[in-house]
Computed example of a mutant assay.
Amino acid sequence: MIDNNFNFKEIHCGSLIKQGVLEKNIELGSICAFFKCEKEEVYSMYEKETLNTEIILQWSKLLEYNFFRIYSEHLILYSPQTRVNTKSQGKGTAKKKNWAYRKNIYTKGMIDFILEILDKGEKNNLQITQEYGIPKSTLNKWRDKYPNGKK
């Protein structure tokens, strides 16, 4: 449904759904029957950048594709690291602020996406590290584990 050149930073849900409908070759009448709506409402959904989660869920079922995965991968790539405050341990003690590094679970699709960007020379390790927050050591491990990006 999405290709390796997909921009996870800017997600237009309606156009992704329209693309899925075209790929699956689903007739407009079937879609209208599924949603119990008129064709104008379907066209309206295609134009919207965001949709209600219930609507996205229904489209996911109809097109047999998890559209929420796109948002999950966006979070993996673009969510900031969070700060956690430790509780003070007594009277007069200042609170310490520690960085809590999130443990990312990268999907194989995300790993392939990043490795392809690196292999094509579109970005270097430093750019990937800065833009997506992926540690340099993680990139090196991926390159060792997936030397051709196909395993």
Rank of each mutant, 00 (worst) to 15 (best):
Q58S: 12
K96H: 03
L62K: 08
I128A: 12
I70G: 05
G121L: 05
I56D: 02
N124V: 01
E38I: 08
D112T: 10
E116L: 15
K123P: 00
I105K: 14
S60P: 02
C37W: 07
I114D: 01
L75Y: 15
E40K: 13
T50K: 15
K36V: 02
N52M: 06
G109K: 11
Y78K: 06
Y65K: 10
I56S: 05
E38G: 07
S72T: 04
N98R: 12
T107L: 07
D112L: 14
Q81R: 11
I117E: 08
I76K: 12
L75A: 09
E40R: 13
S44F: 09
Y43Q: 05
T82V: 11
L118V: 09
M110A: 12
L57Q: 13
E40Q: 09
E122P: 02
N104T: 07
S72Y: 15
Q81F: 11
I114S: 02
T107G: 06
M45A: 13
E64N: 14
T82R: 13
M110S: 13
F113E: 01
F67D: 00
H74F: 14
S79A: 12
C37M: 11
D112V: 14
F113C: 05
I128H: 08
Y101F: 13
L62M: 09
F67C: 08
C37P: 01
N52C: 07
F68P: 02
Y43T: 00
R83E: 01
F68C: 02
E38H: 14
S72E: 10
G92P: 03
I111T: 03
H74S: 05
Y43C: 04
N104K: 15
E49A: 13
C37N: 07
M45I: 03
